[in-house]
């Protein structure tokens, strides 16, 4: 179970430059420092406002653009418990899974508002909106992906199992 946590709502096509801009990614290598600039272009004080356990809720094509793994990393570092979006760009999606940040596709994004309190059960496949007293069904993640997420990402998976998931 993920949450309960507060919703930070964003629109469609949130690209990786908006999640963490190149000018920071290519000048700051310390994750604490880098995370201070997460989502800055869209919400200047995001890193100060967000609390551990909160959710990002967004429209379609979240994470489009570059393959920078710093994008899911800064969100996870700030304590985001999951990104819930109508759809994801593919490299961001794979990167998020590989670093252990849950990514959930949900068709009912429009019913969720900023500030709502959510709880998510990835195994059972639902998002519960405590504020609106609603529950949205989501597609459970494929078992191979859940396995990597449950271990906390690919590095932790390899450390535990001594092999890659596809070996």
């Amino acid at each position: 179970m993920l949450g309960p946590g507060k919703v930070w709502k964003f629109g469609d096509d949130v690209n990786t430059d908006y999640i963490i801009a190149g000018k920071y990614k290519l000048s700051i290598t310390d994750l604490d420092e880098l995370s201070k600039h997460a989502m800055e272009t869209l919400m200047p004080d995001f890193s100060k406002k967000v609390k551990k356990g909160d959710f990002i809720v967004a429209g379609k094509n979240f994470g489009c653009g570059s393959s920078r793994e710093q994008a899911p990393l800064v969100l996870k570092h700030l304590g985001i418990s999951a990104v819930i979006a109508k759809s994801f760009a593919r490299i961001f999606y794979r990167n998020a899974v590989n670093i252990g940040l849950p990514v959930i596709e949900c068709a009912d994004i429009d019913k969720i508002e900023e500030g709502d309190i959510l709880e998510v059960d990835m195994q059972k496949g639902y998002v519960k909106n405590a504020t609106k007293r609603e529950t949205y069904r989501v597609k459970p993640l494929p078992p191979e992906i859940q396995e990597i997420l449950l271990e906390g990402g690919l590095v932790k998976y390899v450390k535990k199992h001594g092999r890659l998931p596809w070996q």
Binding site: S67, E69, I91, R94, N95, N98, I99, L154, V155
Partner: peptide, 9 residues
């Protein structure tokens, strides 16, 4: 394109 963890793999 892939991310850094997959590149390590």
């Amino acid at each position: 394109g892939i991310g850094s963890t997959e590149m390590a793999a």
